[in-house]
């Protein structure tokens, strides 16, 4: 596997591994690269080159995860990245899969099965939305507030008011694994549902589930290996500030 550096043409990089498009989207980089290199594109769109390279490298190679390196990046970058991926899941990927399951109705012999799958997936959507809501409404704002407090060297009012007793550990304890249900769904589709009348739509659904599961794994890797350790570090610094505040 090729090692990524700033002088490769962005278009070549993506042609070599189409999955990198997910990262491009999460960093809000538009396509239409012409002959521009990775560095040129990054500079043009205000993305740190090292951040891009590390994200891409670890997305492609699961053994490659430079945790210490990631911890040096500003927490806002990581949060933006996670927020953008949430947006893509909620607005596009998950509704697409839901639609595909609805369409299965005419495609599998046993109508009960499709109803069952739909019920299962809708339950999943609910679980997924709750998961995202907790992150968007509590974890991210909390992280931004402690980060700001440390930068300004004093506790922000919001932090004092809203999060006086909150710790990232509260989130870690409740943080469940949102890929598990997708894994089950894939398995049920492959092993236990009576065969569909045509394979084409059915296979597209399985492929999409598979891709979403992989994407989510990458997403939770960034949460578990980067965001949470980063917040732990920030909380340690915050403790000092809190002492002084008293």
């Amino acid at each position: 596997m090729m090692v990524i550096h700033g002088d490769i043409k962005m278009a070549d990089l993506i042609m070599g591994d189409i999955n990198i498009l997910a990262i491009i989207q999460r960093l809000n980089i538009p396509l239409g690269f012409k002959e521009k290199t990775v560095s040129e594109v990054c500079i043009e769109h205000n993305v740190d080159i090292q951040f891009f390279i590390q994200l891409t490298q670890s997305y492609r190679d699961k053994d490659y995860f430079p945790k210490d390196h990631f911890l040096t990046f500003p927490v806002e970058w990581i949060i933006d990245y996670l927020r953008n991926s949430h947006k893509c899941y909620v607005e596009h990927r998950i509704p697409t899969i839901e639609k595909q399951i609805i369409e299965l109705e005419n495609n599998i012999q046993n109508q009960n099965s499709s109803e069952l799958l739909l019920r299962f997936f809708r339950e999943y959507i609910q679980e997924f939305n709750t998961h995202i809501e907790i992150e968007e409404k509590i974890v991210f704002p909390y992280t931004i507030e402690i980060n700001k407090s440390i930068k300004d060297n004093q506790l922000t009012t919001t932090l004092k008011k809203r999060y006086s007793n909150y710790h990232i550990e509260d989130y870690v304890e409740a943080h469940n694994n949102i890929e598990e249900k997708l894994y089950d769904l894939k398995n049920i589709l492959i092993k236990y549902i009576p065969p569909p009348t045509t394979n084409c739509k059915y296979n597209t659904l399985i492929f999409d589930l598979f891709r979403l599961e992989n994407d989510l794994k990458d997403h939770s890797d960034i949460e578990d290996k980067v965001l949470i350790p980063k917040v732990h570090l920030l909380e340690k610094k915050l403790k000092k500030l809190k002492m002084e505040d008293k």
Binding site: L116, L117, Y124, I188, Y192, I193
Partner: peptide
């Protein structure tokens, strides 16, 4: 792995 997955299996 999940209870809802097992439920789907049980019904099927």
């Amino acid at each position: 792995k999940t209870v809802s997955g097992l439920t789907v299996y049980a019904i099927l």
